[in-house]
């Protein structure tokens, strides 16, 4: 099952503009990561999903988008987070793609 998840993460990473992808459970345990998405992101991603779920439990979980900037355009990134079935997925994407 773990290899299937890794395979899916690798496939997602092939898409243009994608820098990294990480999957975590609601406790912040990293289930898998690829590319520039480090394991350390699992905690904040799970915490953000948890906060959104606590406030809007009856609605479809929202897509949480975090946008960053830097001196170079390579630092202009978006972190897209979505929770479904108790699993949070975070994708780091370039804003210019």
């Amino acid at each position: 099952m773990e290899s299937l998840l890794q395979e899916k993460l690798e496939t997602t990473l092939q898409n243009p503009g994608i820098h990294g992808i990480v999957c975590t459970d609601m406790q912040g345990l990293c289930l898998g990561n690829q590319g520039a998405a480090f394991e350390e992101l699992a905690g904040p991603i799970a915490a953000l999903c948890e906060e959104a779920y606590k406030q809007w439990p009856s609605q479809d979980s929202p897509v949480i988008v975090l946008e960053t900037t830097g001196p170079k355009s390579s630092a202009d990134l978006s972190l897209l987070i979505k929770m479904s079935d108790g699993i949070c997925t975070g994708i780091i994407k370039s804003k210019h793609n």
Partner: peptide, 8 residues
């Protein structure tokens, strides 16, 4: 959250 080293 820090997504990359150059992030301001």
């Amino acid at each position: 959250v820090k997504l990359c080293e150059e992030q301001r």
